[in-house]
Write a protein that binds this DNA or RNA. Sequence first.
DNA 1: TGCAGCATGTAACCTGTTACATGATTAG
DNA 2: CTAATCATGTAACAGGTTACATGCTGCA
Lengths: 181, 181
Amino acid sequence: MDSDLSIAVLGLLSLRPLSGYSVRKIFLTTAWKSFSSSPGAIYPALNRLEAAGLSKGSVEKGETLRPRKIYALTKKGESTLKQYLAKPVTREDIIWRLNSIPLRFAFMGTHLEKERVLDFLTGLTTELNAYVDSLVAENKSLENEMPFCSQAAFRLGLENLRTHVRWAQKTYNELKDKKEI
Amino acid sequence: MDSDLSIAVLGLLSLRPLSGYSVRKIFLTTAWKSFSSSPGAIYPALNRLEAAGLSKGSVEKGETLRPRKIYALTKKGESTLKQYLAKPVTREDIIWRLNSIPLRFAFMGTHLEKERVLDFLTGLTTELNAYVDSLVAENKSLENEMPFCSQAAFRLGLENLRTHVRWAQKTYNELKDKKEI
DNA sequence: TGCAGCATGTAACCTGTTACATGATTAG
DNA sequence: CTAATCATGTAACAGGTTACATGCTGCA
């Protein structure tokens, strides 16, 4: 129930009620392209959310054979999303789910207080720096025996993490002076 | 047969023959941490590679009930890997498989000629820039109505792509003056 | 002798992919 | 009226996760 796709759908529904097709269109045509827009992923995900009581579908024009269903978050769905968003970033998140950082952040403004968002960015920065340091230390000894391309690949990974650090700091500074988010 | 995990294993085996456990240790203890080190992923992956004729396991000490198996790439495995590495980067690679870029690059030095590696970097740069441009254009109109956190999340995605561009250019320049890779 | 670490595997489950199937609505 | 697009779904399959099961090896 906690795949990136489920969270993305949960987040979208938290902004406004949507049909499965609308969700698909968002994944197809906006910056959310890295989420699957295939019906074989979306409709089962919507069904799972509903089965878990996180959303409720209401049928528009019930008399037809193929009714159009609009899903909206339930109270439970909102609190589940809020809880997920408020969780501090762990090293495991960074190693295995770095892509879900922007996903989480995108929905924070509309669900968490500014202070919690700032906490998230602080925690993220700390964890990222610690992980970068440990990676660098770990690879210091291997560095010389690694062929050029492996070294370069490793550096790309590091640069990626450092980009996240810079982004977190910049975003922190922008946010801390804002009145509303 | 073409998940990131399979490719990573194929790549590691191309450097030297390994047992399943050695592969697991590499994924656990080196910068390759984002690959699953669980036996439930590794051993089936090794079996798939062997079933496809891409690797061959040889049993060390065959008389025991739990033999230690060392896998080595076959000719077919090497050519499959080479073919995969030589494929130019598509927009789909960037959208859905950005993480496999460093994976691919890490093994290029030992399998492709320098010219092909430079081609890869050129193609990657072109595709990345085109995608960044299209994302920016796409979002120009939505920008103002997006809440701060969504905007920031979008910028993180962009920065990530731009980091890849900078890396590709830097690596290109480093590589083009090198005699051996 | 017993325990830690080396080493290999399987089974149930979950979720996404691919391909297919179907119905409803609208513009030409 | 018919083609495109809107819209919803399923079935077979693939591959990873989690949890469990098992055997071997060296050393204290």
